[in-house]
Design a protein around this nucleic acid. Structure first.
Length: 502
RNA sequence: UCCUCGGUAGCUCAGCGGUAGAGCAUGCGGCUGUUAACCGCAGGGUCGUAGGUUCAAAUCCUACCCGGGGAGCCA
């Protein structure tokens, strides 16, 4: 007899009723005397495999019996549709080979802390949630490439080692470079502009490094950025391009990642609303919104809502404790598990209740000319149900290469896309300055070394044209699409302030 | 850099001056349709490190180390 066809869990639907071979790892096992339910993980999905003592040879039975969590196994079995199962299919096992018996696996099916999981990231990647997140990351990456390629953009690779500090040196990783200083890139934009003047429309897709001492859920020291740069595009065209790009990312994720989004329990309604119609909000308007009575009311409502939730949770917790005494063992477990959830949520709420009054205070004290902080951005996005594009910021706190608005000299033609649901800035960019003298004066004003920009100035000497571009933060975008609390799970191996391993 | 919370079994945590605990994981036993399966038994600890207070410290105090969250800054 020949070995049945080797296939994957994702392709089982094509083999219903047939005998197939699957190779993978044991994700979980539930057993009784003559029966093992093995949940097999093969990278494409999960599938329950039923091993019945009476129906297989002794070596197969012993293999199943000895298999521990994450042991590598090869299984031959018949495919059966079963609505109740993850993935919709089940395998009735006819033969099983234990390829490698795993040692005691550190990540159990129970809960773990963040530090422990990050220390075991190389193994954590095997878990279902991580599988879902990184597959969505893959979808987002492919959407971006397809979107730009279909629009005739040229993909380019900007240098990762750079010779000059374009922005503050405090956020640059410095290294020794044959007796000189070199830095890891913070942005490929300036080189992108050069390429745009050569190819019209280009985009970079590469890693970016920031030595910011930030310990927040929105920061990594190494992250991936996509930076399109377009000749003959003004600010409005760049904003439309950013909207179209994000719309494509969301639409592809909704179409191709239903399994993944469901594993993550992502509420898909906010994503469905994000397919078009992103409001354009000027900085002036945003400041007005920030200081409005409506914002104050929203904060007050939010506080009231959180206080109500606190009291509800406390009531539930008390009821749980009261029922605990005479509860059966499995009921007690359920109550205890819920109690942990309640306490976590209560701690989060407490933190929010501490922050909200401060947020409101700083929002109301906001003065025209200042830069929005994280909390200000969040409050502004509360007024909308989809991503918004904030544009035309005071030029003081913006980069030297930004073009001024001809109609209002106080503002620069910059724009940020703010994701809804509190996710904040995922895109930043704008229209670039085209005038040589203006750029030279800006470089001087920002205290930057002029000699480092001679090549960049050349772009304004030989056929300077209107052009625009922006940068999209890949991990922040994936965080938003997935509805995650923290962006460190959206990259296989996160690099943060104090984490270089694994 | 600042603010804040934490470090107790392999993991998640409880204990908060008086003999170190639970659940999961592991091992053994039971159970032929389980869904973080269940039931019984067992092994498993320098209570982050170093000082101090005390008859007595996981518990109180001081310093340091490590981590989480937040601020600033940013994608």
């Amino acid at each position: 007899m020949s070995t049945p066809i080797y296939t994957t869990i994702s392709a089982l639907e094509k083999h219903e009723g047939e005998l197939v071979t699957l190779k993978g790892w044991l994700y979980n096992k539930r057993s009784s005397k003559g029966l093992h339910f093995i949940v097999l993980r093969d990278g494409t999905g999960l599938c329950q495999c039923v091993v019945n003592h009476g129906e297989i040879d002794e070596s197969s039975w012993n293999g199943a019996d000895e298999s521990t969590q994450e042991s590598a196994i090869e299984i031959i079995g018949r495919v059966r549709a079963d609505e109740k199962q993850v993935g919709g299919y089940e395998l009735q096992v006819t033969a099983l080979t234990l390829l490698h018996k795993a040692e005691e696996y550190p990540i159990t099916p129970k809960e773990h802390g963040v530090d422990f999981l990050m220390n075991h990231r190389h193994l954590w990647l095997r878990s279902q949630r991580q599988w879902a997140i990184l597959r969505i990351r893959n979808s987002v990456i492919m959407s971006i490439h397809n979107f730009f390629q279909e629009k005739g953009f040229l993909q380019m690779d900007a240098p990762i080692l750079t010779g000059t500090a374009v922005e503050g040196t405090s956020t640059l990783f410095e290294m020794e470079y044959f007796g000189r200083s070199a830095y890891l890139t913070q942005s490929g934009q300036l080189h992108g502009e050069a390429m745009a003047m050569a190819f019209g429309k280009i985009y970079t897709f590469g890693p970016t490094f920031r030595a910011e001492k930030s310990k927040t859920r929105r920061h990594l020291t190494e992250f991936w950025m996509i930076e399109p740069e377009m000749a003959f595009y003004d600010l409005d065209m760049a904003m439309q391009l950013a909207e179209d790009m994000l719309s494509r990312i969301v639409s592809d994720a909704l179409a191709n990642c239903q399994t993944e989004l469901q594993i993550l329990e992502r509420d898909q309604e906010p994503l469905k609303r994000s397919l078009s119609g992103y409001p354009r909000v000027s900085y002036d308007k945003a400041v007005e919104i920030l200081k409005s009575d409506k914002t104050a009311q929203m904060v007050a409502d939010k506080i009231a809502g959180l206080q109500q939730e606190t009291s509800d949770l406390q009531t539930e917790s008390k009821e749980g404790q009261a029922a605990h005494g005479q509860a059966k063992k499995w009921e007690k477990k359920k109550i205890d598990a819920r109690e942990i959830e309640i306490q976590r949520r209560l701690a989060d709420i407490e933190e929010e209740l501490r922050n909200l009054p401060k947020w409101l205070e700083s929002a109301q004290a906001f003065e025209w000319g200042g830069d929005f902080g994280g909390s200000d951005e969040t409050l502004i996005t509360w007024h909308f149900d989809r991503p918004i594009i904030v544009h035309r910021f005071p030029h003081e706190f913006k980069a030297f290469y930004m073009k001024r608005d001809l109609e209002d000299d106080r503002v620069a033609l910059g724009m940020d896309v703010l994701a809804p649901e509190g996710y904040g800035e995922i895109v930043g960019g704008g229209e670039r300055a085209t005038d040589l003298a203006f750029l030279q004066s800006q470089v001087k004003k920002h205290g930057l070394p002029e000699e480092a920009f001679t090549w960049y100035f050349d772009l304004r000497r030989y056929g300077s044209v209107t052009h625009s571009g922006f940068g999209l933060g890949l991990e922040r975008t994936v965080t938003w699409i997935c509805g995650l609390h923290h962006l460190r799970e959206t990259i296989p191996f996160a690099r943060t302030l104090d984490r270089l391993y694994p």
